[in-house]
Design a protein around this nucleic acid. Structure first.
Lengths: 129, 129
DNA sequence: ACAGAAAACAGTAATGATTACTGTTTTTAA
DNA sequence: TTAAAAACAGTAATCATTACTGTTTTCTGT
């Protein structure tokens, strides 16, 4: 059965994802680890990311500049994506309950909600002035 | 200057996008039109979709099964994506104002917000039982 | 500890959506 | 009407992601 054997690479991949606030892409994780683990394969990173998603240990935040960005914080929170620097920033306190309640009452089975704001972050806003 | 000449294909592409509630992908639009316009090129569909986005006439909703899905309804509304049938459904009345207000006060320049629920739609839910 | 089976892996090739390129056709504005 | 700009078809290239193949690692029961 898949995902039940120990693997030090899997552990390292998860640790890298879980210990950053950057909401990384697969290639970012790979780049972070390839010095420490020279024979790591990018396919292994992708395979384990897919596994973590199945296991509910990570979520997909959004696709930014053609790359999928992930998050090991699976708690209910929103994100802000900067159009200028492509950074992804955590936001808490979403208060979507009225809409969720309405959906539930309409018979929808909500597995996950994904709230993403797009714009220019305050750092880039200052730089651009 | 780009996007300022008349083009019947551009018109047809926009009309196709604007007259559906399916939140189509580029290839869906292409498939819809290729009977009516046999010499249409998929590249033209992509090029015009990019133009419409720049012009703010359409938005990207989400990436579903590896394909970007678009919407000519640029008004403030949310979406529900069914994990089973991949349909994208409009939802209105989001009520995100408290969070938006907080972002504005923190110096973020919000261009767009994107609220997406993932789960099983009520039609699929019935079928699966 | 050891052997066989299952899982995980590296390395590479394939896939498929999207983008770029090239030469041609269409539109525009004077 | 004509030349410049824009739009296009058709094709090739790009690039993130996935699939494949043969090898290595982990696990489980003895």
């Amino acid at each position: 059965m898949k995902g039940h054997n120990f693997s030090s690479k899997r552990e390292a991949i998860f640790k890298t994802i879980a210990s950053t606030k950057t909401h990384p892409s697969a290639s970012w994780v790979y780049d972070q680890l390839k010095e420490e683990i020279p024979n790591l394969s990018l396919g292994t990173v992708y395979r384990n990311i897919a596994l973590f998603k199945e296991q509910g240990k990570i979520i997909t935040v959004a696709s930014v500049d053609g790359e999928e960005r992930i998050d090991a914080d699976v708690s209910d929170h929103a994100h802000f994506i900067c159009e200028h620097c492509s950074s992804v920033i955590d936001l808490y306190e979403t208060e979507l309950s009225p809409l969720e309640k309405q959906l539930f009452e309409s018979g929808f089975d909500i597995k996950r909600k994904n709230v993403v704001f797009h714009g220019i972050c305050c750092e880039c806003k200052e730089k651009l002035n």
